[in-house]
Amino acid sequence: MNCPYCVWVFDASENRYIAPIDADDIWYPENLEKQVQCMLSSEQSVGLTYALVSTH
């Protein structure tokens, strides 16, 4: 990760989840809910979700 601010946010966070979003990202209203549910229903070793949306 090349963003010093992002590293600081991750290190300083006291929350269980972090959801970074860039200026060019598009999130649908249910995005976070679906990703958290995916993590909660997965094995305990899962600690990251990623979503790729194609417009093609």
Score class of each variant (00 low, 15 high):
G47Y: 11
P29S: 02
P29E: 05
T49A: 02
M39T: 00
I26Y: 14
P29T: 01
W8T: 11
Y17L: 05
V7N: 15
A19S: 12
T55N: 05
I26M: 12
A19D: 07
S41W: 00
C38E: 13
D11V: 07
P4Q: 03
L40M: 14
W27N: 00
S42M: 05
C3N: 10
N31T: 12
E30Y: 04
P29N: 01
V53Y: 11
V9F: 12
A23V: 02
Y28N: 06
Y5S: 14
L32A: 06
Y17T: 02
S54H: 06
N15Y: 06
Y17Q: 01
V53W: 13
D22L: 13
W27R: 03
W27I: 00
R16Y: 10
I18K: 10
L40C: 08
Y5L: 15
D24G: 08
Y28R: 08
W8I: 06
G47F: 11
P20N: 09
T49H: 00
A51C: 12
D24A: 10
L48Q: 04
C38G: 09
L32R: 08
E30P: 00
Y17P: 02
E43V: 09
L32M: 10
A12H: 13
N15W: 00
D24F: 11
D11E: 15
P4F: 01
C3T: 00
P20T: 00
Q35A: 08
R16H: 13
E33F: 06
T55V: 07
I26N: 12
V9R: 14
N2A: 03
P20V: 02
A23Y: 04
L32H: 07
V53R: 11
T55R: 09
P20W: 03
N2F: 04
T55H: 09
L52Q: 06
P4A: 06
Q44L: 11
Q37T: 13
L52C: 07
G47T: 11
S13N: 05
V9C: 15
Y50T: 01
N31V: 08
N15H: 08
W27C: 03
E43P: 08
D22W: 14
E30M: 04
S41K: 10
E43I: 10
W27A: 00
E43T: 13
T49F: 01
F10C: 14
S13A: 07
A23L: 04
C6G: 15
R16S: 11
A51K: 12
E30A: 00
M1E: 11
N15S: 08
L52W: 06
N2G: 05
P20A: 03
R16G: 07
E33Q: 13
G47C: 12
Q35K: 10
Y5T: 12
S45N: 15
C6E: 15
D25R: 02
Q44C: 09
S42R: 02
H56P: 05
I21F: 04
V7H: 13
Q44A: 13
D24H: 14
F10K: 15
Q35S: 09
Y5P: 09
M39K: 00
